[in-house]
Amino acid sequence: MSTQPEKLESDSQNESGSKVLVVYLMAMPDTPELAQAAVEAGADIIEIGFPFSDPLADGPVIRRAGERALAAGMRTARCLEVLAETRARVSVPLILMTYASIFDAHGWERLEREARAAGATSFIVVDLPADVRPELRRVQLVAPTSTDARLKLAATSTDGWLYLVTVTGTTGVRPELAPSLAPLAERARAVTDVPLYAGFGISTPEHARAAAELVDGIAVGSRAVEAAQEGPAELARFVGSLRGALDALAVA
């Protein structure tokens, strides 16, 4: 048996039974303050992106945010400091989200250890398929193209919840919620009981609401990164609007 982490990511399901809201922020010097604003406005989980020079799974918004972060000196050691500073301000789960190259260079076990010491509760490695390095316990991603066998594989090894990529595509703001989410959620539900949170392309309260009708939580990336660039007040306003949409659903 693998050792269970003290706290499963799904423990963050808020008491009201409302849907879980995950907010992505690119690691920057002001991330601790932004994360606090997001949590106070209703975020249940924060993902902190460690930038990578060649982010294959990201569209223009997060790619540019990564370029800015690297220009601002956000290398691994500095990102870990930001993670620790964020942990000092918020008590929700913090997920380090990055690419394999960052782990490979720092050392897989070393980065896991140092990130946990800094307050990370789990990991997402965007370009590390579920069957590679299972010893790094992490939140697994599945996509509309995933076969049922791969859905099962990811669900068995995932850390608390399964990340459903709503679209066949990269991260980025999209006008509509992808129609591919519904069939993916249905297929995932058929093979696992772990909570399902959907992300990629979710950028408005309407999307949040529509997605939350299908799954247990949502993750917001590109639009949150844009809002964060406007400062904590704008981020709080945006996160609050998503929280409102999710809570309205719980009441309805």
């Binding site: 990578f52 020079s53 060649d54 294959l56 690297l70 290398r75 691994t76 050691a77 690419y99 394999a100 190259s101 960052i102 782990f103 490979d104 260079a105 720092h106 370009d127």
Partner: peptide, 18 residues
């Protein structure tokens, strides 16, 4: 390092940035 889907020998810095 890891770039474009494979692990290989790369021009990268000590943090894995290409």
């Amino acid at each position: 390092g890891v770039l474009h889907g494979a692990r290989s020998s790369l021009l990268a810095d000590e943090d894995g940035q290409i």
